[in-house]
Amino acid sequence: MKPARILIIAGSDSGGGAGIQADLKTVTLLGGFAMTAITAITAQNTLGVQGVHPIPTEMVLAQMESCISDIGVDAVKIGMIGSAQTAMAVAERLAGLDGVPIVFDPVMVATSGSLLADADTIAAFHKLMAIATLVTPNIPELAALGGEEIAARFGTHVLAKGGHGEGAMLTDRLIGPHGLAKSWSDARIDTLHTHGTGCTMASAIATGLGQGMALPDAITRARDYVRAALRLAPGFGGGHGPMGAPFTFHA
């Protein structure tokens, strides 16, 4: 059987912990075939983002078209989008993909606290949410997007991630257009090295969907994968370091 083809539309992280670099590792280790359309190049490390260079919208679309027209796509993961213009253009192109699941991670702020999307880009996220199978915001992102009602408003599912919550137990909630569909609770893994958790989670879910898994099952496997990666963090850098790569991970 051929591996599921996962198109990743996201920014590059020079430090290797998040973005395209984390996506590639995740898709590959979960048995998928990763393709990329890079939306921005960043200079960043565990301490923050030192520079961002958006890729022109036309080049983002050209990368997408090269993959779609020749190799084909079984699922799409969207991360850092680069600009409002790119967000609108990407949404329009993906709307033409019939039956392909789309996972949108609405990246606004890096783990270090650096801003990765301006106000206009965040406003354009509405177009991406309207075509997404699943949106995966953390607590601050969900609040900025309008709260849990975005699931009903855009006719999508929302994975409200609880990693920014307080307490020893964290809960992720899957919210559909008609309300809560499922929830998962686990003990917090006490680590500073959480760079790339959102990117990794979204890519893992997209891989599962591309492989034909039901949405709750894809989320369950993705959560297990992220928790394994957190436990394997190598401790690189002086700030929020990258997670590890669970090469022996089995669902």
Rank of each mutant, 00 (worst) to 15 (best):
I6T: 13
G16F: 00
I20H: 05
D23A: 14
L24T: 13
K25T: 04
T28Q: 06
T28M: 02
T28S: 12
T28H: 10
L29S: 10
G31K: 11
G32A: 00
A34E: 03
T36Y: 01
A37K: 07
I38Q: 02
I41F: 12
A43R: 13
T46C: 01
G48H: 06
G51Q: 10
G51W: 10
H53N: 10
H53V: 12
P54V: 08
I55V: 15
I55E: 00
E58H: 14
M59W: 15
V60G: 12
D74F: 09
K77R: 12
I78E: 02
G82E: 05
S83Y: 01
T86W: 14
A89S: 12
V90E: 07
A95H: 15
A95F: 09
G96I: 08
G99P: 11
P101N: 15
P101T: 15
V103F: 14
P106V: 06
V107H: 06
V109K: 14
V109Q: 09
S112D: 09
L115M: 14
L116M: 14
A117I: 11
A117Y: 06
A123K: 15
I131G: 10
I131L: 12
T136A: 11
P137T: 02
N138G: 02
A144S: 01
G146E: 03
G146W: 02
G147Q: 03
G147P: 03
A151G: 05
A152G: 14
R153H: 13
R153C: 02
A160C: 04
K161V: 05
G167E: 07
T171Y: 09
T171W: 07
D172K: 09
R173Y: 06
L174N: 04
G176A: 06
P177M: 03
L180A: 00
A181Q: 11
W184L: 09
D186V: 12
A187K: 15
D190Y: 06
D190S: 11
L192K: 15
H193V: 04
H193E: 04
T197E: 09
T197K: 09
G198V: 11
G198W: 08
T200P: 04
T200L: 07
A206L: 08
G210C: 02
M213I: 01
A214I: 00
A214D: 07
A214C: 01
D217Y: 11
A218S: 10
I219F: 00
R223G: 03
D224F: 11
D224H: 15
Y225Q: 08
A228G: 10
A233D: 07
A233E: 06
P234L: 06
H240A: 05
P246C: 03
T248P: 00
T248W: 05
A251W: 10
